Amino acid sequence: MSIKPLGDRVVIKKIENEEKTKSGIVLPSTAKEQPQMAEVVAIGSEIDKDEKKKDQLKVGDKVIFSKYAGTEIKEDGKEYTILKFSDVLAVVE
Rank of each mutant, 00 (worst) to 15 (best):
P5G: 09
E18W: 03
K4T: 13
P5E: 09
K20E: 13
K53W: 08
I12F: 05
K74E: 05
V92I: 14
A31E: 06
K4Q: 13
L27Q: 08
K14N: 12
L6W: 08
D76P: 10
G77E: 04
V63W: 03
V91E: 11
D50V: 00
G24F: 06
E46N: 14
L83G: 04
Q56Y: 09
F85I: 09
D87N: 15
L57A: 00
D48R: 09
N17V: 15
D50M: 06
K78D: 02
E51C: 08
E18R: 08
G7C: 11
L57I: 08
V92H: 11
K32Q: 09
G70L: 02
K20G: 13
L6F: 13
L27N: 03
E33P: 05
D61I: 02
K54Y: 02
V40C: 01
D8W: 12
F65N: 05
V11T: 05
L57F: 01
N17F: 15
V26T: 10
A90P: 02
F85L: 06
T81K: 01
L57R: 00
V40G: 02
V63G: 02
V41G: 01
L89M: 15
S29K: 10
D50L: 08
L57Y: 00
V41C: 03
E75C: 11
E51T: 13
N17K: 15
K4L: 14
A38W: 05
D55L: 07
D61A: 01
